[in-house]
């Protein structure tokens, strides 16, 4: 549990500040519950967990629950009730992100236009992260595929998944247990960089390796 407490910040933020005050009933449910179950992301007026800016390897900060007026209501240890992070679904959005200090490679693999094969530069990144995962068996990784903004959004959702799968396949070939990897796609919905030119597009056609 010690290493777990090195995990970085996850903040439970009142979703959509502009929204109406959440019903008191739901607030009670959140305050009473120790487990994270009550705080799963919900709809307007309820609470959502946000992964906040992380400083790699920093000390653990508990989840903070804010009221609609910005006042801190309570703090919850996000890992209470979690047995072992290594057994969790890597795509579980409640798991805090783990960032490497002084990583040798950016945790991103880039792709060509309408392509989903990993090139040699990408393989170098993946060999590094395969090594990280091999050295710390408690770590798991979520692989999020992304595309540039061009073309239709649903095709891009599928294309992003193809890219994440290509990274998944490469990591498995490099010896990582598939159970420790989660594959997902955000399509064109979450660009790393905004703009509409080729250098922006190249930065957005990517798979991000999120260690947890």
């Amino acid at each position: 549990m010690k290493t777990l407490s090195k995990l970085a910040v996850a903040v439970l933020a009142a979703s959509l500040a502009a929204c109406s005050t959440p019903p008191q009933k739901e607030m009670d449910a959140i305050l009473d519950g120790d487990s994270m179950q009550d705080t799963a992301p919900g709809l307007d007026g309820r609470y959502q967990i946000q992964q906040q800016d992380l400083d790699g390897g920093a000390t653990m900060t508990p989840v903070e629950v804010y009221g609609p007026d910005g006042q801190l209501l309570t703090t919850i240890d996000p890992l209470d009730g979690m047995q072992n992070i290594g057994d969790s679904d890597p795509l579980d959005p409640r798991l805090p992100e783990y960032k490497l200090l002084n990583a040798l490679h950016e945790n991103v693999v880039y792709f060509g236009y309408d392509q989903y094969s990993v090139d040699e530069k990408g393989m170098e990144v993946l060999r590094y992260y395969a090594d990280v995962l091999a050295q710390d068996p408690r770590r798991i990784a979520a692989l999020y595929g992304h595309t540039d903004e061009r073309g239709s959004p649903e095709y891009n959702l599928a294309l992003g998944e193809k890219r994440a799968k290509a990274v998944f396949d490469a990591l498995v070939v490099l010896g990582i247990d598939p159970k420790r990897l989660g594959v997902s796609s955000m399509g064109e919905e979450e660009p790393a960089v905004f703009g509409s030119n080729e250098s922006v597009y190249a930065k957005n056609r990517r798979v991000e390796i999120i260690l947890k």
Partner: peptide
Amino acid sequence: STKPIMSPSWSPDGKKLAYVSFEDG
């Protein structure tokens, strides 16, 4: 939502929408 919403599709009677939400990640 603070997460993406995509692809609304109308029911033929105009009373419902199907759509994609990333609300739980």
